[in-house]
Amino acid sequence: MFPFVDGFHWTFGHVLFLTVFGIVLAVIAATLMVSLRRTARESKPGRAEAVRWKSEFHDLTGYERRCRHDLAGRVGHRHCHNEFDCRECETHPKLASVTAAEFDFSTYGLDYPVDRFYHRGQTWVKCESDGTLTVGLTDLGKRLLGRPDRVNLPNAGEKVFANGRGWTAARGGVEVRILAPVDGEVIATGGPESEFYLRVKPLEANPNLAHLLRGQEVSGWVRAQLEQLQILVTPAGSTASLADGGVLMEDLPKAQPEANWDKVYGEMFMAP
């Protein structure tokens, strides 16, 4: 194999063999080394959360990755390729100005106040007059969790990052992670009994909330979510059983205990 080993000859065959397999081994080793080095670099808390979101977003189905402007009816089929971060999207500002010709705004009996910004992980953000942001669960999110068995909130002073872990909640033995909608430092925490879950101080003076849903988009999004929920809680083979036309139950797990809530939570809270 090597020049110092008995049997090696300086012939074309030996040199070629050694070169080719040397390169192959070097490429394999280099690939592993590069990924390990990058891993070491990216393993800091904030970065790891960002990577987790990237990886999870990567695995979302096309339907789940629909663009907000698609939800709002501004464009036809369009999928997001930007990890739902419209702050860095080039197309977003162009499309945001388009108004859909006809769109009937409805939140299907659910309470989605217009003064708030919405994140696809079932959270809302409200800008307070003192410059802080309030984060809470949307109406659908509340109904999905019902009365949670346990909520694990971050401590004051901890930082949360948009699309990173906000807090976790458990219901019926299923633990689910709720994504934080914004970057910021936690200054106060609420809980299921309170109006809000977190109060955060944004990392920048004027936080960019462009990645959060607003207005018409909310309506399309809620509709899509309800459709998905209906499919998720319907046992295979039977027809849709969720109330249509009426209003959703307050505590969904209590109403439909036979559904696979692990799966429902995973899909609805984007926690695969």
């Binding site: 390990l36 990216e42 970065r47 790891a48 990886s55």
Partner: peptide, 10 residues
């Protein structure tokens, strides 16, 4: 976290 990041980089 490290496994996930490694998975992503790899």
């Amino acid at each position: 976290p490290s496994f996930l990041v490694f998975e992503w980089e790899l």
